[in-house]
Design a protein around this nucleic acid. Structure first.
Length: 991
DNA sequence: GTCCGACCGTA
DNA sequence: TTACGGTCGGACG
């Protein structure tokens, strides 16, 4: 961009609201879909672009971008939590138009820009100043006064609705101050729509007058004593701080990190057919005709585009992030109303669309012989172009390993809905792009690269543009894997969906969410098994050694199936009211977790090796004593042999049996025997602990140290629990010992890099707090509000023992009961836990319910809900399904009931920490800590960070604050959340 | 080689 | 009494 160029910055979000209110809502599609704002937007863009071509008329953009708000959790909320807190949900008819306007922007071939953590205004400000700095002219298409501070001799505003330019004189005329003083003026007057406080009683006229007199806000505030009017003087003195905060809120940032540089905003030629297809889908006949004339296209020959409609989830659940789009209405039945009155392109309501799609794809044959192998750059370009045209592409990587940190990229497959490569068709076409296949299977020296592959570097450069293009939606199955593999090649994917996560949000509790299973379930199609192409066991090969034709069939099929699954599952989100869960709690976690996995954590090999030696010695000693006591040598690790010795040859009384009929040798049983005075069981328990620590931790962990990074990279699964918790594997870092002193030594091996500390922040009693919240238990809520010992309080309530001087055993029982409640208590389970009679446990439970009747109510109503709906919900609306809740098998039914009672508690806590994790990185960025603090691990109620020594003090309150307020603003907890944080050189001391 | 049960580590 | 994943032994093929 250079002098003489003219950048247009369209305030997309501002325009949506203005157009919606300015244009009558009777502007609807034939099926009832409200499109008034979309219509105004399209006409405005067309006018701007037409003028761009006709140099005789108006100003002519050479560059243009449309900018949207992305999220309401901006840095301004940090400065002033009440910022925009009074915003109510947008009107129902507006909700589907947010998404449509983004589609419209893409149909116009224009960049669509949004940046997390910043408002559209800040992005506009940043671009405007950058363009000005290189000598270009700027026109901001908006009439929002918040943007007027940006006006200079080179930066103008344009009110598209009134067709009016706004320059410096216009600002002065309207507000009485020049643009550079608008910030001070707004700081004084405040803004009721955004909840910017300002100074009460001061409006624009007074503010302008004061600024005229004192020059600027700071001078005014310091010299406020000179003001003659008594009330005004006192008012300003009293509220000086409020004015300063307000100033921070209204001043726009000009340092927003930009994904696209100025050059990328250059105005591309119009794509007539693409635009016409969109306009036809919107039924904008006049504009369609005009565009067709100008582009010299035959509009009649172009089919309407398939435009997905995001309905929002107006029907239910809290708004997960007030103010963000698309947001919710509070009316309980509004989604149905919108849905009933409006229609998507291949259905009449979201539910119809979902059903139609499911029907269309169930059993629809998949022709795996039609897949294409892309072997030259030109063909690749053609496919990428086609993907851009449709704005939707399924994507899959083929690699040499299931571990994304070790995997070498071998090839990439893509699938598109093809109305570009073969016009008029909406079939799916899929292709495989081999990149690193080798020849010479079985050749000891290994073969060279296979013939007919595009050089990796060239192909990745082309794919990078597509994958990082926010205007093209990428669909993948288990996206985190592909995201990480691509990130390791310098590609940071933007705009994505994950079919695994769609299935998880919709159907958690109904089986797993792997691609093969989903394909069977929804498409009636069995994909080619991996082992059919790569073999299995000893004779298996890595994917780079698979013949390219075989690889094409397998890989392209994966992309094809993924795209089909997306078409089936995505409409179900809106139909079932789960869009917000998916968009706010699930999808944003993918990059967050990918980054955590990529970072890994340092594990000290020496410490583990030393511990392993110690454990080996102790275990050997214990083993000798065991043989001595048993009178023979046997495999201590074999429960079967051990059982024979203890309960057979030695004749000890057997406790419980396992489900295979064997005598149980569990720790519980052995402890009971030890209490009876038998020495052997005690030794077995000791031996088990030592060998467990050795085999599972000290010996296994070093094997996970990555050869290049020298760190341990766990893998998080987003979709393997019914409740919404994450799980960790290879290695599982969510079960590193902590309860015993011996076990805690393992944690000393998890260390920070030099100059850093590990910071651990964990929620205190989060599940009991959630219980107090959902079941509305007055005593529990009070106890948490007062910060008293919750288990002691319970004991005191139940047994009438004062908290002061309470025997530890009494408190222990109460603690077990509290946990039992969370787990959907049964007398049997509690009796087991406390080693008491079942009748006594039953009495405890009875007394508990008497003291806390709300708990009983919660349990009964949760069970009833689960029976009626087949699922339960967290406080944020995540669902956990229990299809067997009505089982005729009483123990199976009871098990499902307990799980259903537990799921909203465990799941709500899981949702809260998810929200914290999603907010952490932007919050750290806003605090300037991005480079100095890195989130490494999550252990259900704990987050572990690696922090530069000097940043610990600043980072800790930021992290604690985010975590403690993570439920807000979606859910206002009736109980405070408490987070404890510590930093130290290793995990043991930090915890 | 692959699968399953028993056991045990975490929240 | 909830939710997980890893290791081992032992049985199956």
């Amino acid at each position: 961009m250079k002098k003489g160029d003219h950048l247009f910055l369209v305030d997309g979000s501002g325009f949506i609201f203005r157009a919606f209110h300015a244009i009558p809502a009777l502007n609807r599609k034939s099926d009832g879909l409200p499109v008034n704002a979309v219509s105004g937007f399209c006409n405005m863009l067309w006018k701007l672009l037409r003028d761009a071509r006709n140099t005789d008329v108006g100003v002519t953009p050479t560059h243009l971008a449309v900018i949207f708000d992305y999220s309401s959790t901006t840095f301004r909320k940090e400065i002033y939590p009440l910022y925009k807190a009074n915003r109510s949900a947008p009107p129902e008819d507006l909700i589907p138009q947010f998404g449509l306007i983004r589609h419209a922007t893409r149909a116009f071939n224009l960049p669509c820009i949004e940046t997390e953590g910043f408002e559209a205004d800040d992005i506009i400000a940043t671009y405007a100043r950058k363009a000005e700095a290189v000598g270009a002219d700027v026109t901001i298409v908006s009439s929002d006064k918040d943007l007027m501070q940006l006006v200079t001799s080179n930066v103008h505003m344009y009110d598209a609705m009134k067709d009016k330019q706004i320059g410096i004189p216009d600002v002065i005329e309207k507000w009485g101050v020049p643009p550079e003083k608008m910030i001070d003026l707004q700081a004084l007057t405040g803004d009721s729509t955004d909840n910017v406080p300002g100074i009460p009683g001061i409006g624009p006229k007074t503010a302008a007058q004061l600024l005229e007199e004192f020059g600027d806000l700071e001078t005014l505030l310091t010299r406020a004593g000179e003001i003659k009017q008594v009330k005004r003087r006192e008012n300003i003195v009293a509220n000086a701080e409020l004015a300063r905060v307000s100033r921070q809120l209204v001043e726009l940032r000009t340092d927003v990190p930009l994904d696209m540089d100025l050059e990328a905003l250059v105005l591309e030629p119009q794509n007539g057919p693409k635009l016409i297809a969109f306009l036809k889908a919107m039924e904008f006949t006049t504009l369609t005709r005009r565009v067709a004339e100008v582009c010299d296209c035959d509009a009649g020959a172009i089919d309407p585009a398939v435009v997905p409609v995001e309905w929002g989830d107006a029907a239910r659940g809290p708004d997960l992030d007030a103010g963000e789009t698309p947001a919710a209405s509070t009316s309980p039945n509004s989604a149905t109303t919108v849905a009933a009155s409006a229609a998507g392109p291949d259905g009449t309501t979201p539910a119809d669309l979902a059903a139609n799609r499911a029907n269309a794809f169930a059993g629809k044959p998949i022709d795996t012989s039609a897949y294409v192998t892309i072997r030259d750059f030109e063909t690749l370009e053609l496919w990428i172009k086609a993907a851009r045209e449709t704005g939707l592409v399924a994507f899959d990587t083929e690699t040499t390993s299931l571990d994304p940190m070790q995997a070498e990229l071998v090839g990439v497959s893509i699938a598109i809905q093809d109305n570009v490569l073969s016009p008029g068709s909406s079939d799916i076409r899929a292709a495989y792009i081999p990149l690193a296949h080798k020849t010479g299977v079985g050749d000891l020296l290994g073969g060279g690269p296979a013939e007919g592959q595009i050089p990796m570097k060239e192909a990745l450069a082309a794919l990078k543009d597509l994958l990082e293009d926010a205007s093209v939606l990428k669909v993948a199955q288990n996206l985190k894997y592909d995201y990480l593999v691509m990130k390791r090649h310098g590609i940071v994917m933007q705009s994505f969906d994950d079919t695994m996560l769609l299935s998880y949000v919709l159907d958690a509790g109904k089986g797993n969410h792997g691609m093969d299973g989903l394909s069977e379930k929804w498409l009636g199609h069995t994909p080619i098994p991996y082992k059919d192409v790569a073999g299995s066991g000893k004779s298996s090969v890595t994917f780079d050694l698979v013949d390219i034709d075989r690889a094409t069939a397998y890989a392209a099929e994966d992309a094809d199936v993924t795209l089909r699954l997306w078409l089936v599952l995505k409409p179900r989100l809106a139909a079932e009211g789960l869009t917000r869960i998916y968009e706010r709690l699930e999808r944003p976690l993918v990059p967050v977790l990918a980054h955590m996995e990529e970072r890994g954590i340092t594990v000290d090999r020496q410490i583990l090796s030393r511990l392993s030696g110690e454990l080996a010695q102790k275990a050997a000693a214990a083993e000798d004593e065991i043989y001595e006591l048993a009178g023979e040598r046997f495999n201590v690790g074999s429960p079967k042999q051990l059982g024979d010795i203890l309960f057979g040859r030695m004749g000890l009384p057997g406790g419980s049996k396992t489900k295979t009929g064997q005598w149980s040798t569990s720790a519980q049983v052995l402890e009971d025997l030890a209490a009876e005075g038998a020495p052997l069981p005690r030794k077995i328990v000791d031996w088990r602990q030592l060998t467990k620590l050795k085999s599972t931790y000290t010996d296994a962990l070093p094997g996970y140290i990555h050869p290049q990074t020298k760190r341990v990279h766990t893998g998080y699964s987003l979709a393997s629990t019914t409740t919404g918790r994450l799980s960790s594997s290879e290695p599982n870092l969510q079960n590193i010992p902590v309860r015993t002193a011996e076990g805690r030594k393992i944690r000393t091996a998890f260390i920070s890099t030099p100059g850093h500390k590990l910071l651990s922040a964990d929620y205190s009693q989060i599940e009991l707090r959630v219980l107090a919240h959902v079941a509305e238990i007055a005593q529990l809520r009070q106890a948490f509000a007062d910060g008293v010992d919750i288990h002691a309080m319970t004991a005191s309530e139940m047994f009438g023992v004062p908290v002061e001087g309470m025997p530890s055993d009494v408190r222990r029982r109460a603690k077990a009961i509290n946990f039992g409640i969370i787990y959907g208590i049964s007398a049997f389970g509690l009796a087991n836990q406390l080693s008491i009679e079942r009748s006594e446990a039953g009495d405890y439970i009875k007394r508990y319910f008497e003291r806390f009747p709300g708990i009983k109510d919660y349990m009964e109503s949760t069970k009833a809900f689960a029976r009626e709906h087949g699922y339960v919900e967290t406080i944020f609306g995540r669902r956990a399904h229990y299809p067997d809740i009505k089982s005729s098998n009483p123990s199976m039914r009871a098990f499902n009931e307990r799980a259903a009672i537990n799921a909203p508690i465990q799941g709500s806590a899981a949702d809260i920490i998810r929200r914290a994790m999603i907010q952490i990185e932007p919050a750290l960025a806003a605090a300037g800590l991005s480079e100095r603090v890195r989130m490494l691990l999550q252990v259900h109620d704990e987050l572990i960070f690696e922090v530069e020594d000097d940043a610990v003090e600043t980072a800790m309150p930021v992290i604690v604050d985010i975590m403690e307020n993570a439920a807000m603003p979606a859910v206002s907890m009736r109980v405070p959340l408490k987070v404890d944080a510590r930093a130290a050189h290793n995990w043991d001391e930090a915890h």
